[in-house]
Design a protein around this nucleic acid. Structure first.
Length: 889
RNA sequence: GGGAGGUUAGCUCAGUGGUAGAGCGUCUGCUUUACACGCAGCAGGUCAUCGGUUCGAUCCCGAUACCUCCCACCA
């Protein structure tokens, strides 16, 4: 029996545990020869707490997994956790500092790694339990961790393979350096933010001649490392300057003027200062022109000794101020103006990234991208929604090499060794650590102190999670995976790279489909952020409204564009739906009890043809809803599936069927056999609805089913409903639709005329003789009950003088109202309605008078248009009649 | 600078080449023995603007305006 109040917290976790304990979440629960369905969870960071973005992804994945599982597939949904290199290291470092005041350098690498391992170990279970709280049916016997042994093997295998194929290389390049994180970053980890800055004009006096060259720069502090000025070769303003020298202010050095076509003559003065050590453009220009490179900013973001004694040790931004002051003092400033500059900032700590030259490991991306694009062009994987393929293609086309080394301690160590002479030794795939240099056979090798970018383990995910490069049984059976569900924000970081890895190392795309969902925002559409204080905690929402409601809400919202406006009021709205389901079940239980004193369930076998109209109608609707839900899920339209369910259950089942069936179930005069049949249908519709609902609401569906037939647990493994071709009855549908429309019109009329809802009326329905009229006549008692009618007359024409006349669908209706006179207000309303109908009719008449319309439009459309006109005219005529008669005009 | 997307009811958004939809909200009635997290009903939209294609356009095409987002080493 279900309690009067719907309290999800009282049963949700109980059902989760029962399902997990029963082993349902393991693929072994399915038949041996079942077709696999595989999803790998995008691993949340160990340091993190589950946020709404995760909740969305896990919900959509769980809907798919539970749905496929009910269809009999061998579902493997692998959960996992990411070691999150830089994020974890920073958290542990901060914690260490707070506790002991020490830095990681104070305690050393080994001791620090111990702390990281402890930290991650302590956190790992939390995030997994948070995933459980949502109801996610992952196979927790197969949890992966991106820094565990199998994953390390895969990482090493991939890197060594790439190296020996010439696709991984070590090079000195200008890279993105974060002085605060003290590591290099890949291009993707840098955000370009437009910010207002200044463009400063600085004079460089000519050497050995009067005059000066004025350059415009946004970074005056780098001038200390200038090794040339550059002008465009075709710029007449500066013709003949090539080869001359200028004095570099503040340094005492002189530098040459060179010509190079990379200079934009339109920008600034057309003269560019060249700082090969601190600007990517200048780095290239320096190489082209054989210029010296002077490093004046160090990896700590402070000026180096090479910047001169006056500046050494100064922070780069302090140095900028001092350079400007000093230039002022020397009278070499030539003005400044505001200038919008795209500043590169560290994604993690927001520090301004410094372009610096450094020796790092890179992966040659173009060949990998080519393989990936070849696969996606062939539809492997398919993008959902498709438009993301464009973005992906665009990025792939312009892909640049991936810097994969990081100057961190926490992560996968790079399997590269160096001998005293600096030769690089990378073992062959599958080989152990080298003992001697591959080039010179020297013995004392030193391992590269750096670790890999976290994404360098993530991009192997579907492969490594299933045991690759070993040919494990799981890999053989479950790879490639079925679908990847994730946010579009990591399309490049992760999705694109996984496709590259899959197509390169295995030859197949790692998943058949990739579903990219939007980003969850707050209810007003604002981005959630701690500083704004608008962060919604999905776990708190689960506690307050139930995980079922949270999941349903996320599923419904997932269809909307790029943003999902999520918040309390919305979740509360869908909790109301869960409550509705709960109460409908309580009603059904009462009805079933009334039958023979216990909650026995009538046999499932339903003899469709022998059923009453209402029963046939709801089964037809159920079949349709079932088809819609299945089709929507096939297309990853979670919103459509959820809405179809919501609409069917609430409008058709509760508001329609249940209300129509009450008199039949309660009426003393109804034969027990009929009641029994209806109880059978009621039960069947409810059970099927629970099954349809289960992927979205895996808890309340079980709880109710348990009360209904004592078999709640098995719901997770019950066959997912299929549309039933036999449950189709257009006649029943037509008459019920008409009946409901008539009921609405009568109720509406009462409200319009200010009659109490309890006022009993007489109704005439004008229908031509035929099956519809016959069916309707059979439903008179039901109609009378629903619309509160004292008498109903059905015939091809009903002539009740003074009665109100109207049209509903194809039927004319005639209502005897107690008050003949209508208020002026109502009269105005009717007149307005008539005017609307007239205008509409005019438009249609014009269309029908148009010879080209008649000639070119399909016959069916013309026919329908004519019908429309008739209906409009009929309704207009009837409504007008009401006015004439009642006002005596 | 390059690219993608958006503009539909008060709000958040679906949607279709042939008389505009949902949820929430507003309003009006209702203790109708499953449910006020409810029932019943009403109201509310020249589908951003201007052109074009079409018998017909909210939907297709082009332009404009405004808004988002992504990518990008030009001082």
């Amino acid at each position: 029996m279900l309690g009067k109040n719907f309290e999800p917290a009282s049963f949700e976790m109980r059902w989760y545990k029962a399902q997990e304990d029963a082993g349902f979440f393991r693929p072994e629960a399915a038949a041996k020869d079942a077709k696999p369905f595989t999803i790998v969870i995008p691993p949340p960071n160990v340091t993190g707490r589950l946020h709404v973005g995760h909740a969305l992804g896990r919900t959509l994945e769980d809907v798919l997994c539970r749905w496929r599982r009910m269809q009999g597939r061998a579902v493997l949904w692998v959960p996992g956790v990411d070691h999150a290199g830089i994020a974890t290291q920073m958290v542990v470092e901060r914690d260490l500092k707070e506790r002991t005041g020490k830095s990681r350098h104070d305690i050393g690498r080994e001791a620090f790694l111990v702390l990281c391992r402890e930290w991650a170990g302590a956190r790992r279970g939390d995030i997994l339990n948070q995933i459980r709280r949502l109801g996610s049916s992952c196979d927790f016997s197969r949890v992966y961790y991106t820094l565990d042994e199998p994953r390390s093997k895969a990482v090493r295998h991939v890197f060594t393979t790439l190296y020996h194929e010439g696709l991984a290389y070590r090079a000195e390049r200008m890279v993105n350096w974060c002085p605060s994180c003290a590591t290099v970053l890949s291009d993707l980890e840098v955000n370009h933010v437009e910010s207002s800055g200044h463009l400063y004009s600085i004079a460089y006096p000519l050497e050995g001649a009067p005059g000066e060259l004025v350059v415009a720069t946004t970074r005056p502090e780098t001038m200390l490392g200038d090794t040339a000025l550059a002008v465009h070769p075709d710029d007449e303003r500066y013709a003949g300057l090539d080869g001359k020298r200028v004095k570099l202010p503040l340094t005492g050095r002189t530098i040459p003027v060179i010509s190079d076509s990379f200079v934009d003559r339109q920008f600034g003065t057309g003269v560019v200062k060249v700082t090969p050590a601190h600007d990517p453009n200048d780095f290239e220009a320096g190489k082209r022109n054989g210029l010296e490179s002077i490093v004046v900013i160090g990896f700590d973001g402070k000026m180096t000794a090479a910047a001169g004694a006056a500046y050494a040790g100064l922070d780069r931004f302090e140095a900028r101020k001092k350079v400007l002051r000093d230039l002022d003092a020397e009278g070499l400033r030539r003005g400044e103006k505001s200038h919008v500059i795209p500043l590169a900032r560290c994604q993690r700590c927001d520090t301004v990234v410094e372009p610096l030259v450094s020796l790092q490991w890179f992966v040659k991306a173009a060949p990998l991208a080519a393989r990936a694009v070849a696969a996606t062009d062939a539809g492997e994987p398919r993008f959902v929604p498709e438009l993301w393929k464009k973005t992906y293609d665009e990025w792939m086309r312009n892909i640049r090499d991936w810097c994969v080394s990081r100057q961190l301690w926490w992560g996968h160590e790079i399997p590269a060794w160096y001998c005293p002479d600096g030769h690089v030794t990378v073992p062959k795939p599958g080989a152990g650590d080298p003992v001697a240099c591959a080039t010179c056979a020297a013995g004392n090798l030193v391992r590269d102190p750096d670790v890999f970018d976290t994404w360098f383990s993530s991009w192997l995910m579907p492969l490594s999670v299933l045991g690759w490069p070993e040919k494990t049984p799981d890999f053989e059976r479950f790879y490639p995976t079925s679908v990847l569900v994730t946010g579009f924000d990591i399309l490049f970081f992760w999705v694109a790279r996984m496709i590259m890895a899959g197509t390169t190392f295995d030859g197949r795309a790692p998943f058949a489909d990739v579903v990219l969902h939007g980003l969850v925002r707050d209810e007003k559409g604002q981005k959630m952020s701690k500083t704004k204080g608008n962060v919604v905690d999905p776990l708190e929402m689960c506690d307050e409204f139930g995980a079922d409601a949270v999941r349903f809400t996320l599923a419904v919202l997932s269809g909307t564009g790029r943003d999902l406006p999520f918040g309390k009021t919305r979740v509360a709205g869908y909790r109301a739906f869960a409550t509705k389901v709960w109460n409908a079940a309580r009603f059904a239980l009462q009805m079933l009890e009334d039958g023979d004193g216990g909650t026995s369930v009538p046999p499932h076998a339903i003899d469709f043809a022998s059923l009453g109209t209402v029963d046939r109608w709801i089964l037809a609707r159920l079949s349709k809803a079932t088809a819609d839900v299945n089709a929507a899920l096939e297309a990853y339209r979670f919103d459509e599936a959820a809405n179809a369910l919501y609409q069917f259950f609430w409008s058709d089942f509760c508001d329609g069927y249940v209300e129509m069936v009450k008199p039949a179930l309660r009426g003393a005069e109804v034969p027990e056999g009929e009641k029994e049949k209806t109880r059978g249908v009621l039960t069947r519709v409810l059970l099927d609805s629970l099954a349809l609902l289960h992927p979205f609401m895996p808890f309340v569906s079980c709880e109710i089913r348990e009360a209904l037939n004592g078999d709640g647990l098995r719901l997770a493994m019950t066959k997912f409903p299929e549309p039933n071709a036999e449950w189709k009855d257009d006649g029943a549908t037509e008459v019920i639709v008409l009946l409901r429309a008539i009921v609405t019109r009568v109720r509406n009329l009462r409200a319009e005329r200010g009659l109490p809802q309890t006022e009993v009326l007489r109704l005439g329905i004008e229908l031509p003789a035929g099956p519809l009229s016959k069916e309707m006549r059979r439903l008179v008692p039901l109609l009378s009950h629903l619309a509160r009618l004292s008498a109903v007359e059905i015939s091809s024409s009903v002539n009740w003088p003074g009665a109100h006349r109207d049209v509903v669908a194809d039927a004319g209706i005639v209502v005897q109202l107690p008050k003949q006179e209508i208020s002026s207000e109502d009269e105005a309303k009717i007149r307005k309605e008539i005017e609307k109908l007239q205008a509409e009719a005019e438009k249609i008449r014009a269309r029908l008078a148009d010879s080209s319309f008649l000639a070119r439009a399909p016959a069916a459309v013309v026919e329908r248009t004519k019908q429309q006109l008739e209906e409009l005219s009929e309704r207009q005529k009837r409504l007008s009649g009401n006015l004439v008669e009642t006002t005596g005009e």
